[in-house]
Design a protein around this nucleic acid. Sequence first.
DNA 1: TTTAGGG
DNA 2: CCCTAAA
Length: 632
Amino acid sequence: MPRVPNSARGKRSTRRKKDENDMCAFDLLATVAGNLLADQDNSSNVPNTNAAKAKKRKSVKEEHFNEILPLKDVAMEKDVGSGSVSAFPRQANNCLAENSSTRNGAESILESLTMKSNMLAKIPECGSYGIHHPGSSSSAEPEQVQQAEPKVIRRQADGHAVAYGIFDSVDVDGKPPALVSSDSSSCVPLSSHDKEHQTSSLYRGEVQYTADRDDDENSSGCTHPSTIENKGCKPQYLGNHRIRKLLASKVRKAARNKICGGIPSKKICGGLSNKGSKLNLCGKKISTTRQKVQRTIFKKKKLAHHTTSFAKEMLTEASGTSFATGGQNKSCESENYHVKLRIKSFNIPELFIKVPENATIGSLKRTVMDVVNSIMEGGLRVGVLLQGKDIQDDNKTLRQAGICHDKKLNNIDFTLQCERERESPSGVIIPEQMDFLTADMVEPLARMKCEEPFPEADVGDDNQQSKAPYRSRSLSDLYSVHCPVEMASQDTSASSQAIIPVSPAPSDMGALAIVPLCKSKRSEIGQRRIRRPFTVGEVETLVGAVEQLGTGRWRAVKTLAFDNIEHRTYVDLKDKWKTLVHTANISPQQRRGQPVPQELLDRVLAAQAYWSQHLQDKPRGKARLLPEICFP
DNA sequence: TTTAGGG
DNA sequence: CCCTAAA
């Protein structure tokens, strides 16, 4: 905890140099916070760090390097100091080493984590974040750090936002830093370890790379990726950092622009406001950088081919574990347990953009951003799926829903849904993992995998949902943009329209035009609806209705018997009947799924037979001709 | 929008 | 469940 201040401070100063223009308010806040923190932290931390250093600095260095990395990662993820790290990898390493040495076991990790969290809470800007680790930063390499900082600064711009978010959260929440830290610390490091270990060697390069890239305005950096040493690893690393940033940026933007104002945002906001923790997340995320986003997009275009496959991979992976939850013991002292969730990735449905070749990259970037913004404005709703089951009751507590701190939850999914679409749960649900139109998205996706664990809301709130979504959103936005077209067509076209306007707007070029492809339906429906096998009860209801109404009046059947079941459309009912008839005609051994009572199947056959002969009679208003009597 | 059917 | 031609 203590170290943070130092880093924060340094960063701040450096940053200011370059970014002064941009960050007034934030900077001020950051500065103030930094000072406060610094005061507190300096005294306490230094000693520890020194001791740790003395212990094993060298020995640990390489051995623990891997372990350390995760920490770093975490820190970076936090949004705070990634930049700093990249700038001076070495120092960072040292710091890390120190940290590692310090920790004998899990404790050390916790410590680091805690620090991180603290940093988040307390120190917003922290480019110097890396310093936080131990005194090393403060005592040993201050100079270097500072030097490095400048480079980072740009990226840090995002950091500003982060800081902002943090501040907000802090203020609002009023949570003690400790709490925050604990939450954040929770699992992040651990999870990251495994994956990131191996990359340690690469890490530096990657980081550096990232930094460089960021600097490049035009994405010149984009070309780099391939060149860099890291093969598989890199993506992840970058992914984490970037993703975070991206998310943050997206969130931020959304927040800025309208999250609060927009319909969808409302919900979210509400959630956030309610819970401090949420706010934190939001804030963090919000901070992001636009540049990164842009970059990402750009990349997309360039890498399209290769990336596609990659992206897919990533997606798959993400989807598989898209949502990982870890029960953490972290418990807060209080009776309230917290559920820690980690969303590895969140994708948004595809977005189609049509841009003339002669358009500038800048215009393209703007266009994409605009589209993303418009989408964000349009509103996204988050759904929570547990074991594939959509939990629609927002009032349910997590515990009631079966999401408990002590349970291993491997099957939680969040869905994004266009706000406009349907208020009712029945609305089309867009699964987290959306397909990306273009491979372009690939890189982003990779990064998307965020492992950052975030402090979860208290059990019992829907807030949690909102949280998750946030993150996801931000991420998703970057990669793929969901085409609102559908939404527009359905109800309020706000979102879609928004898009349209966008095209002109970006307009410096004027040439750009965003065209939502008509696949729009796809986007909306895009993802296949969640499979919800008919229950025996539903089958019974269906059979009863068909007995009464016949087999050619599915709309009526729907109205009569399934009017209150949003997710069963008359087409669904028709399809189900079709399968029921088929099922009834095959041997029981050939049937799959939950067995349907033979009695029902018999009724199906009877009704089918009956109506097949009376189809033409279909009495309109009342077909009651075939009461139960007809189908005993 | 519904139906009816093929996938 | 999806997609769509027809009505």
